[in-house]
Amino acid sequence: MAPALTYSEEELVVLLKQQSQDAFNYLYKNYAGVLYGVIRKVVTDEQTAQDVLQDVFVKVWNNIGQYSTEKGRIYTWMINIARNAAIDKLRSKGEIMKSKIQTGEDAVYNVQKGMKTEQATDTIGLKEAVAALKPEHQTIVSLAYFKGFTMDEIARTLEIPLGTVKTRMRAAMQSLREYYNSN
């Protein structure tokens, strides 16, 4: 049955604090897809992604008492929980460390090459927004948002100055904002 009632952010918080199964069903129906989408961008393995999704819901459920609207939108709060949990999982599997630890020129070259071809076009997988972001912007957004790299790590990995990383982040997000405002 499609949800027939929708709730604002504040109402959703009240609803979740009731901790009923109805509240859970509402939360799941409305947010599981978005949260799972974010997780799958970080960890591609389906089974692992499902494990993370479960952890995320449990975490949201248990921590709703600590959430307050002053901390920003609950939507952003949940997306960040999903993103962080997924990145933690990725790190615990050691995958991400590989690309971070490598310092030899070949390694960096390979990482760079990988980004430029495969990652630049595919990793971020912006289905429709792909037209809105230049490839070099996609790479930066992807490394930061989906792989958990800091600006410094991005600069080193891509061998570009830190200032360029910041400029590109700004430009990338400006394009995204424009894209979603006009659509």
Binding site: Q21, Y36, G37, V38, R40, F57, I79, G125, M173, L176
Partner: peptide
């Protein structure tokens, strides 16, 4: 903007997950 981006990239988890998580 990132929220719209996340929504545009939503992916439905397998149907059994809802009950499993509950």
């Amino acid at each position: 903007a990132m929220q719209s981006f996340a929504e545009a990239n939503a992916e439905e988890p397998p149907a059994h997950m809802q009950q499993q998580i509950w």
